[in-house]
């Protein structure tokens, strides 16, 4: 119980910190060039890693166990390229994943 509350407190403080720091640091001066460079590239990098982290426990001799996740990601991505409807893309991939992980 208290471990959960401490966890929530830690996450709250860290999240507020990441949102507040630009307002604290750059209220008077301009951000440095290196930061502007990372600003442009960090979001696509992080999203790629977040998607790939699904397979972080992947073992080659159990490759088949990753089929549902791989199929779910491909369908969600394809649906989003096609219709760009957030709900449809998320629901499509998730339903396929749930079906395949029960069937296979």
């Amino acid at each position: 119980m208290s471990r959960l509350l401490f966890g929530i407190l830690a996450m709250t403080i860290v999240t507020v910190f990441t949102r507040a720091i630009p307002f604290i640091v750059f209220s008077k001066r301009d951000p440095p060039k290196l930061l502007i460079f990372l600003e442009a590239y960090l979001p696509p990098v992080l999203m790629t890693i977040l998607v790939l982290s699904t397979f972080k426990s992947f073992k080659i001799d159990e490759a088949y166990s990753q089929i549902p996740a791989l199929a779910g990601i491909i369908i969600s991505g394809a649906l989003h390229f096609w219709r760009r409807n957030v709900l449809l893309s998320i629901a499509g991939g998730t339903v396929l994943f749930m079906l395949l992980s029960r069937l296979l």
Binding site: T48, L50, G72, G77, H80, F81, S89, G92, G93, T94
Partner: peptide
């Protein structure tokens, strides 16, 4: 898995 799907959507964006 909805979370993975959400990240996939954000990656496409």
């Amino acid at each position: 898995f909805a979370m993975v799907a959400l990240f996939t959507v954000l990656l496409v964006e």
